[in-house]
Design a protein around this nucleic acid. Structure first.
Lengths: 202, 202
DNA sequence: GGAAAGTTGGACTCCGCAGTCCAGCTTACA
DNA sequence: TGTAAGCTGGACTGCGGAGTCCAACTTTCC
């Protein structure tokens, strides 16, 4: 094993986080720590060496996951044609929900509202809110450039996000799986972008 | 008390259901039965007389609640101007989320996916799915009448629903409360309707 | 007044899980 | 080779909640 004498084994930290992601997504926050330990090929005690409590583990997991889900939203797509930029944005949103149990993970975050509100809130800020803000910024720039007319860019961004993600998200959160392959995702994102542009044309 | 000899007391059934709605919304599905009993001024045993288990109670609650939340969507608003009809539809969706802990209730339904999937699924079918289908039907009729052009009415309905509800729903589910008075609801619904019509104009 | 069914509250069983403890083991460095 | 730290696994404590049981009380009908 690539670990140093008496030093915490970072590869185990990874394994624990991965196992937690799988188990907690599938079984919800109430899944027992023991199962996470088993999945990570690690003893329960080791988990408590790395993360002081279940809450801390969930917190760390949320932080990592929200980064994965919003990765790609940072790239400056302003160079693209607005329609393509919007479609790309929509694709990323949907992929975040589809890939790697994204929806199940979101459900887990919601579940934790009653028991650990700060975690859920942080997730919201770093995830949905940040992504909408990012889109709003883009819309504002496009408006200034005269290619679009969004008097209220944040509202427009929320509308667009809702269009793209809305129906799939609600269904998935309620446990109704719709197969959504890349082709369909592409179609939805493109169509939403097209309609959105019509709605907000100059 | 208005109850018959040895017959189950229907007014208690009501009280239990109301108490369950409050407690389960506030504290999540994991809230103890004892608390529901206390809130309903009823003994725990009585709850088990009326509903055989916690799952059955939650089920009954979901069934009642979904009716409350979708009430008003049945009225034939086709007579209205499309923009007003859409705005009205949007208002009802938002009110369902805002009034009486609607969002918290939705969260509860989602939370119960892992432990009682059938309940969540039934909720989805009777709630979000039915309402979108209803709207799609309206859009199809308007398209046939030449006042709108929605080649894919169901997709359009989902887009509209997402626009109206999307941002508020995600935030609320993650425990971030935005004050949303009737005036704001009205504004959002109207604006969404207006934009939607532009996107789907003939 | 008695029978039938419901209600009460409180005690009680059973279960599952978070988190702790410990004894024995492994690893790496000095 | 000693020692300092981490890891293992399994036993253990403590807690909280679902669902049951029961003896005493209430209500209505016959």
């Amino acid at each position: 094993m690539g670990r140093v004498a008496g030093q915490i084994d970072l590869s185990k930290t990874e394994a624990i986080l991965n196992a937690a992601a799988e188990v907690l997504s599938a079984r919800g926050v109430s899944a027992p720590m023991e199962e996470i330990a088993r999945r990570a090929n690690v003893s329960k005690q080791t988990i408590y060496n790395h993360y002081g409590s279940k809450a801390e583990l969930v917190q760390a997991l949320c932080e990592r996951r929200v980064q994965e889900m919003t990765a790609g939203l940072e790239s400056p797509e302003a160079a693209l044609h607005p329609e393509e930029a919007l479609a790309s944005f929509g694709r990323i949103l949907l992929l975040g929900l589809t890939q790697m149990n994204g929806a199940a993970f979101l459900r887990m975050a919601m579940t934790s509202v009653t028991v650990m509100p700060e975690v859920a809130r942080a997730f919201f800020e770093a995830g949905p809110r940040a992504s909408r803000a990012r889109l709003a910024e883009f819309l504002r720039a496009e408006t200034l450039a005269g290619r679009l007319f969004c008097p209220d860019p944040l509202e427009a961004a929320e509308f667009f996000g809702g269009m793209v993600v809305g129906s799939y998200q609600t269904a998935a959160l309620l446990g109704v799986e719709r197969a959504l392959d890349e082709a369909k995702i592409d179609r939805i994102a493109k169509e939403a972008a097209r309609r959105f542009l019509r709605a907000y044309a100059t």
